[in-house]
Design a protein around this nucleic acid. Structure first.
Lengths: 231, 231
DNA sequence: CGGAGTTGTCACGAATCTGCAACACAGTAC
DNA sequence: GTACTGTGTTGCAGATTCGTGACAACTCCG
């Protein structure tokens, strides 16, 4: 197997070099870029297998770079991992929505970064495997952010997807609207609690067609629960 | 004491079955998974008391699975023991850093594995994973706010649920109406004491169908008591 | 710019729950 | 037995909570 190439986009040189060192030792071929411009230049003449992007960059935010990469047909399939100092859940959501394949919070151990890189590479490899979660035929594919029933795809908006993802990874348990806002929207946003109801409704509607809306259960006076057990 | 359940995540069938056999003979309930996806599926519908994970798995390394489990709030408390063929100290450290609770090197004797399992279980016993409270088949699940009898769910209103939850967590003891108001309704509300009687009635009615209404006992002149001992 | 899709709020009706009072019944003391 | 106290049971009106459709603001993308 030829060495996988990783492009590191990070403006702080010590960090960049430390990561490069770690990756080289792990058998990766490494290319470095200190800002988005350099990253574009690097992408113009080589085709890395994966890009590591720092969230904070001098000329453009890493999130924007990620978005740009995911918009361009040429680089759409290129896996991107975001590095960030912020631990906020909201940013994580934003990052993944922007198209990043994974998200690593600083400080991280080289080992952890390696694990994430390997996971993402494996996932994006041809015939690669995605982390699937299934409840009686309802399949959540966290890799492609899709929900499927047999060969068909359930049409979900971004928020509904995140909601269902949260529920399917935390089933059999009641969550208050407050908790759901925290876990799905992220800690520091203000939205009305009743907004949850509306999204629950939208999620149910999308699942209805496939007969899975019964999994999204109301617990009156407490909140909502996802369960394959029909009450 | 109910049998502890162990989930074995191991791709090599002979090894998996050998371990399963040994554990069953030792009184454990065993669930098997051959890869991480199967493990996730298994975790979705059961809650084992401990997970045995092979380091080398076809779809994801055992270490990554361990990390994933430890990242998730739902499974964070779930003890994990890593199985590995490598004896390197570095790997051991990595495994424990990844969040594994213990680490067993192949080849191992069944006796050794058992000893490790018991040690880990003992360590994680208090405040363990199990939030189920049971009285002779009547099961209270505080996580999902459900009361179950076998596969069936007892239909309770919010107040009745809170009432039963209080009773099942404080059995064998008489509470006056006043105390019940305090503990179930909260200190600063004013409701008639006789309202308790009505909710007791509703609770009994809901349990009646399953034959558990006898657990809710009247102590004339004092109050009510929950007890599996039929007076 | 324009259209498609998404999002957070609101308002209103539907569904459900709650506490109370009134009456029925049971247990106890005399 | 009678009187009295304590508990069981029921129906209901008001209160709470939830489901739902509509809508305006917004983003994204071409």
């Amino acid at each position: 197997m030829p060495a996988k190439q990783v492009l590191i986009v990070e403006d702080e040189r010590p960090i960049r070099e430390m990561i490069a060192f770690g990756l080289k030792r792990a058998g990766f071929e490494v290319r470095e870029a200190e800002d988005c411009r350099a990253a574009r230049a690097a992408l113009a003449d080589t085709r890395p297998d994966l890009v590591l992007v720092d969230w904070m960059l001098p000329d453009m935010s890493g999130l924007e770079l990620t978005r740009a990469l995911k918009r361009d047909r040429e680089t759409r399939e290129l896996p991107v991992i975001l590095l960030t100092a912020r631990a906020e859940e909201g940013d994580k959501v934003a990052g993944l929505e922007g198209g990043a394949d994974d998200y690593v919070t600083k400080p991280f151990s080289p080992r952890e970064l390696l694990a994430r890189i390997n996971a993402v590479l494996r996932r994006s490899a041809p015939g690669g495997f995605d982390e699937l979660i299934e409840f009686e035929g309802l399949v959540l594919d966290q890799g492609s952010h899709r929900v499927m029933v047999g060969p068909r795809t359930v049409g979900l908006g971004p928020t509904e997807y995140r909601m269902l993802e949260f529920f399917m990874t935390h089933p059999e348990r009641v969550y208050t609207r407050d908790q759901l806002l925290d876990r799905i929207w992220g800690g520091n946003v203000y939205v009305e609690e009743r907004t949850i109801d509306v999204h629950i409704r939208r999620l149910r509607k999308a699942l209805e067609e496939f007969g899975y809306d019964r999994f999204v259960q109301t617990v009156r006076g407490s909140g909502y629960r996802f369960s394959a057990r029909t009450v």
